[in-house]
Write a protein that binds this DNA or RNA. Structure first.
Lengths: 235, 235
DNA sequence: CGGCTCCTTGATCAAGGTCAAGACATGTGG
DNA sequence: CCACATGTCTTGACCTTGATCAAGGAGCCG
């Protein structure tokens, strides 16, 4: 897992910088960040941090995909969100000084840069633009989480599955064959929707019968985006 | 509704200041706030702001209780959280520069101080302690919303009702007769739990039969806190 | 060729949503 | 003070959604 030297990334030239709040840092702060951070390679299945632990820092995703989930009854996961290049993970617990509310697990091999809490908080409190960026980030996530509370409380399974397909489409985009560019097990899809694996399978095959999507193993092709939108956007 | 002059509150002496991030403001900033803010009296049933609108500002609750909810299918409300004296509402949309994700409605007559967006953002970006307080606040709320996603996805009705009773207990405390100090309709309780009114009623009367709570109109008395905790804390 | 893991389908069942009706409390105007 | 209307609460009956259990199929790897 540890592979720092090979995968070292220079913040100065890092291509994800523009998407992250780090673009607001000054030259000196970038140098400090570059010096103190640690870049590592993670393989599919690796756990970056565990729910309930104090993280000690924040990770910037340079490459790969992760799922952030909470663990519930009988160890059943509830996926809260995904992280991909340019995303920051672990900042919630660092900034609120609580223990982590999710577990972060690698879905596609990833390179993550670790930034110690102390440095991160220091950067935030000394750079107003950076801290405002972080505020916007957490407020945005809060809005999304609140939306999902409504969905879970009021939408049917069918509506939520359609919505999750749109979420995956928006988050990961399409490959050259128009399949959604992410490989999730049916169980993982169920853990986003908040339902049983079998129920997701049934709903997906319904959508396939109806001509809204096509299925090829784990790959999902969206055939009728508008129809899915209509199904999911009931209010 | 407008009653500014009667209810004017001086930020300098405001008793809720210690609970809010405003304690981090300097003398000059407090004066500015005092000068620009507008205090108003709101009656039960008044809507302070609507979901989907750009707020134009933030409200500081000096007195009273509000519910913040999203509107779903057939106008059914999903209550996201409550606000009471010392709480700030509307900051999420102001800070993320999005439209409001909830509607704020007064449950108990309230006095609210309105702070225009421009001033609020300025205070946040010029005062590191204040902005760090806001970051902590939104990150904390994010943690709570994420927890509720898991609950809605995995817990049974019974478990969620018990949990909501504990939430109400924690938020509003007890009156001299040990009843939870808030008056909610059964429908409102259902809109926190995320279920039908009838289901909440049935579950409450089950809890009463089991000796966990007592009911007197809308008032709820907690008889066996530990039992409720055990029911709700299944993981 | 086993032995995995994951996917799929069918059958069954219970949790909880929906509908309907009546009880109760409160407020209003005559 | 009564008659009536309105809103909330409660209970019963019914039915749908989706969870659970069980079994077999498909794909992959050593």
């Amino acid at each position: 897992m540890r592979n720092s030297d090979n995968d070292f990334i220079f913040c100065e030239n890092c291509f994800v910088k523009e998407n992250t709040g780090f673009k607001h840092l000054g030259k000196e702060q970038i140098e400090l960040l570059n010096y103190e951070k640690a870049c590592n390679l993670y393989k599919r299945g690796d756990i970056v941090y565990h729910e309930g632990h104090k993280g000690g820092g924040v990770y910037c995703v340079n490459k790969g995909v992760l799922k952030l989930y909470k663990t519930g009854i009988d160890g059943k996961e509830q996926i809260i969100r995904f992280a991909k290049p340019g995303d920051l993970i672990g900042f919630r617990s660092v900034l609120s000084d609580e223990s982590s509310c999710t577990t972060a697990k690698v879905i596609e091999d990833a390179i993550l840069c670790f930034i110690p809490s102390k440095l991160f908080v220091e950067l935030a409190s000394k750079n107003a633009e950076f801290s405002m960026h972080l505020i916007r980030l957490s407020c945005k996530e809060l809005g999304e989480s609140n939306k999902y509370i409504l969905d879970l409380a009021q939408k049917t399974l069918r509506e939520r599955v359609a919505e999750v397909l749109l979420l995956l489409f928006d988050t990961f985009g399409l490959d050259e064959e128009n399949y959604i560019q992410v490989s999730l097990t049916r169980e993982e899809v169920a853990n986003i929707v908040g339902t049983a694996t079998e129920s997701v399978i049934r709903q997906l095959s319904d959508f396939k019968k109806e001509g809204s999507i096509d299925l090829k193993g784990r790959r999902i092709k969206v055939l009728d985006l508008e129809k899915l939108k209509k199904i999911s956007e009931i209010f």
